[in-house]
Amino acid sequence: MRGTIPILRIDGVLLAAVQVELRDAVAEAFQVDVLTAIESERARGLVIDITGIDVVDTYVARILTDTGRLAALMGTETVLVGMRPEIAATLVRMGYPMQGVRTALDLEQGLRLLRRSRRATVGKYGRGPA
């Protein structure tokens, strides 16, 4: 891992808590780290915790949704957790579509969402996890 945002593995899911200001260099390293970790850990889900972020402008929103879309290309679902009320209000007011990521209130609910969605996939295609 080369970036400043640590990525942990919990029960087959990657967890990244963003607690630094996202700059161009930080964002790029984060996306490379996420993709590398998805491959090496064979992660079935990615949770990005943004509790520590106080401003989500279109630049940060774009980094978050792009990361979700990159993960999706590798077959991994992304859930964004910890969005504060004022950030949700701001994003809606600006009209920013958070495409490529799902959202949940907190880490616990984010992990539950990934488990549920995994079960639904298994049921649909009739096979278990790899």
Partner: peptide
């Protein structure tokens, strides 16, 4: 309040 502050700060950042 936190909502007005977040709106102004986000527009500033943009």
């Amino acid at each position: 309040d936190t909502f007005a502050s977040a709106a102004l700060v986000t527009a500033t950042s943009e």
